[in-house]
Design a protein around this nucleic acid. Sequence first.
DNA 1: GTCTATAATTCGATAGAC
DNA 2: GTCTATCGAATTATAGAC
Lengths: 197, 197
Amino acid sequence: MTATTQQNQPPAPPPRRSDATRTAILAAARERFAADGYERATIRAVARDARIDPSMVMRYFGSKEGLFDAAVALDLRLPELARVPREEVGRALVDHFLHLWEESEELTAVLRVGVTNEAGTERLRAIFRDQMLPVARQVCPDPEQAPARAALCASQLLGVALTRYVLRFAPAQALAREEVVAWLGPTVQRYLTAPAP
Amino acid sequence: MTATTQQNQPPAPPPRRSDATRTAILAAARERFAADGYERATIRAVARDARIDPSMVMRYFGSKEGLFDAAVALDLRLPELARVPREEVGRALVDHFLHLWEESEELTAVLRVGVTNEAGTERLRAIFRDQMLPVARQVCPDPEQAPARAALCASQLLGVALTRYVLRFAPAQALAREEVVAWLGPTVQRYLTAPAP
DNA sequence: GTCTATAATTCGATAGAC
DNA sequence: GTCTATCGAATTATAGAC
């Protein structure tokens, strides 16, 4: 079945007939990378989950690294926080991150892969640099301190994700999301806006 | 050269002649697990670093998992903190952890492995349960809240180690250890002793 | 105790028929 | 676009000579 009925939708994405296969592969890849990390997430397993042939993964994405790059295009959607009052940005950030983490497996995938794969590490560094750092630059008093403050925020946000969603410490999972926000919100707020100690 | 001159030292460790090989293997294993994680840290590479034959590793430790178990016997030495005043335990904990992390590769190894290997995850959970939790029980006001407060501390301590020593975010590495202590000390102190929000 | 040789898998990647 | 078949390399683990 060829895509016959499309003549002019220049800005709209051209719906190729292979898009379904493509997205199925990517969804399966995210799941596997999140559950197993880079090394143990095999192309064969991804293909099995997507109910296609392993060689299709190679055809679509060229290599395992190409598959990872395509599967994890992480947008933290931090500009959504642009309109919260300056003194509430800590709570908002924590709440936003927890929602992000729970609504998709992409963050778990990139964290798990980032710990054992060099390309994954570089990806995490880029996300920090391009998405977290600008927020700190905008919020914190002295722009020169922005990198340090952003790094402190990242340490707490990644740390809670690590204990809650990757290592799954029982007491970390037992906390309700509102409790985590109430505890960590002031911490992140302080890292961003409090005078340096 | 056989160990001839030992007849009675019952409590003292019997210095077998193969101990040197054994410790060389373990040191190499820690290094490899810390640098590469579980999957990419091969027995062959460990043996090469220790300048022995790969089959010796199997003979000494039975399997790759046995090697990991033997290589990472993590003692956080937290009882050392028993005598610091209650209101300074936050700073002391952060300082202690940073020293631990910088003086050996064992913590990096167990964290990296814990993220992608189930046995490693279980090891990290055990360390949290047996070493971190008791400190919280001793310090925090309501013992019933100890697990939650210990989990919060772990999230910040593991988070800063993650960004500093594993992912190596540039701004996280640029911070001096004293700066990290000054920023995170109050955080951990609050997680342990401040009234619940 | 140490080493050689190799078994038994598993993986990423490729070639080519249909 | 999809699949079969397979290559070449790497791994853990074992068997056995010395």
